[in-house]
Amino acid sequence: KPRTPFTTSQLLALERKFRQKQYLSIAERAEFSSSLNLTETQVKIWFQNRRAKAKR
């Protein structure tokens, strides 16, 4: 499956949310993903990858 090209504004929103909170609840993820026009899976995986990056 092809890589999702996130827009700059989506990335800024994702990073801002990640700084507030590294783990989103299912409800938060649902609301946040629809506000960004992304799927919940895209947001879930982005947060997983971002947490992995933060550990490195």
Rank of each mutant, 00 (worst) to 15 (best):
A13R: 09
R16G: 12
R29T: 15
S34A: 14
K53D: 14
E31D: 08
K55H: 10
R3V: 15
P5C: 09
T41K: 03
I26K: 07
R50Q: 14
E31P: 04
K44P: 01
I45A: 10
F18G: 01
Y23G: 07
E15C: 03
L24D: 00
T8L: 14
L24R: 01
S35L: 07
L24V: 05
S33D: 03
R51L: 14
A52M: 08
S34F: 08
K21M: 07
Y23C: 09
Q48I: 11
I45T: 11
L14Y: 04
L11H: 01
E31K: 05
N49D: 15
T8Q: 05
W46Q: 00
T41S: 13
N37F: 03
T7C: 08
S34N: 08
A54E: 15
K55R: 09
F47I: 00
A13E: 07
E40K: 00
L11A: 11
E31Y: 03
S35K: 13
S9R: 07
S9G: 12
R3T: 12
L11E: 14
A30W: 07
A27C: 11
K1W: 02
P2N: 13
E31S: 09
S9E: 10
F32G: 00
V43Y: 01
T39S: 12
A27L: 09
T39V: 03
K17W: 03
Q22C: 08
S34Q: 12
Q48Y: 08
K17N: 01
L38G: 02
Y23K: 10
L38T: 06
A54K: 06
F32M: 13
K21D: 09
T7V: 06
F47Q: 02
K55Y: 12
Q22D: 12
R50A: 14
F6P: 01
F18P: 00
P5I: 12
L24A: 00
R29F: 15
S35N: 06
R56S: 12
R29W: 11
F18M: 01
A52Y: 05
R29G: 12
I26L: 12
A13G: 08
R19C: 15
P2C: 00
V43E: 03
E15G: 01
Q20R: 05
W46M: 01
Q42C: 10
A30F: 09
S25H: 08
S25C: 05
Q20M: 11
T7S: 07
I45N: 13
V43T: 02
F32A: 03
Q48V: 06
F6R: 03
E15M: 00
K1I: 15
E15K: 05
L24F: 03
F47P: 02
T4E: 10
R56G: 15
F6M: 07
T4G: 06
L36T: 06
T7E: 02
R3I: 15
S34V: 09
Q20C: 07
E28K: 00
K21I: 08
I26V: 13
R19L: 15
F6K: 01
L38I: 11
T4V: 07
L12I: 04
P2D: 14
K17M: 12
E40R: 03
T41C: 13
R16F: 12
T39W: 02
Q10L: 04
K53Y: 14
A27E: 15
S33L: 00
P5M: 06
L38H: 01
F6G: 04
R51F: 03
Q42I: 06
N37M: 04
A30M: 13
Y23T: 11
A30G: 11
F6H: 04
I26A: 11
A27Y: 07
T39K: 05
R56H: 12
Q22A: 12
R56A: 13
T41W: 09
T8I: 07
T8D: 15
K1T: 10
L38F: 02
E31L: 07
K55P: 15
E28N: 00
E31T: 07
L36R: 04
L12E: 15
R51N: 12
A30S: 11
A30L: 13
K55E: 12
I45S: 09
F47S: 02
E28S: 03
Q42A: 13
Q10E: 01
T8A: 13
S35M: 10
L24G: 02
I45V: 13
S33Q: 04
I26Q: 08
T4Y: 11
F18L: 01
T8Y: 04
S9M: 15
K53M: 08
S25N: 06
Q42E: 14
T39M: 02
L24I: 10
Y23A: 08
A52W: 05
F47E: 05
L36C: 04
F47V: 01
L36S: 04
R3Y: 14
A52T: 09
R19T: 15
P2H: 06
A54C: 09
Q10R: 00
Q22H: 09
P5D: 10
L14H: 15
L12W: 02
I45D: 15
S35Q: 12
Q20G: 07
Q22R: 06
T41E: 15
S35D: 05
A54R: 05
L11D: 12
K55M: 13
K55D: 15
L12C: 10
S35V: 08
I45P: 00
E40S: 05
E31W: 14
Q10D: 12
S33E: 01
K44L: 12
R56V: 14
L12G: 10
T39E: 09
E15T: 02
K1E: 08
A27N: 08
T8K: 02
K53E: 15
S9V: 10
F47W: 08
T39G: 08
Q22E: 13
T39D: 13
F6W: 05
T4C: 07
S34M: 12
P2Y: 07
T39A: 07
L24P: 05
S33A: 09
N49E: 14
K17C: 07
F18Y: 15
S25Q: 04
E28Q: 05
Y23H: 12
L38E: 01
K44G: 10
A52R: 08
Q42N: 08
L11F: 02
S9Y: 06
R3K: 15
A13L: 11
L11C: 10
Q10K: 01
Q10C: 11
P2T: 05
T39H: 09
L36W: 08
R3E: 15
T4H: 08
Q48T: 06
E15P: 05
S35W: 07
Q48R: 05
Q22I: 09
I45Q: 13
A13I: 14
S35C: 08
S33Y: 02
R19E: 14
Q10P: 00
K53W: 05
R19D: 08
K44T: 15
A54N: 12
S25W: 02
A30R: 10
K1G: 09
A30K: 06
N37I: 02
N49Y: 11
R29N: 15
A27T: 13
E28P: 00
L38W: 00
T7W: 00
F6I: 04
R50W: 03
A27W: 05
L11M: 11
T7L: 08
R16S: 14
K53R: 09
T39Y: 05
A30Q: 14
T7P: 02
L11G: 05
R50M: 11
N37D: 14
S34Y: 09
S34T: 06
A30C: 08
R19F: 06
R29P: 01
Q22P: 14
P5W: 03
T8M: 14
K44A: 07
R3L: 13
L36M: 09
T4A: 09
L24Q: 06
Y23I: 10
F18I: 02
S25K: 05
A13T: 09
E15I: 00
F32S: 03
A13W: 00
L12T: 13
T4M: 11
I45L: 13
K17R: 10
L12M: 15
K55I: 11
L38N: 02
F32E: 01
A27S: 12
Q10T: 08
P5H: 08
R56L: 11
N49W: 13
K53G: 13
T41G: 10
Q48M: 07
W46I: 00
S25V: 03
R3F: 12
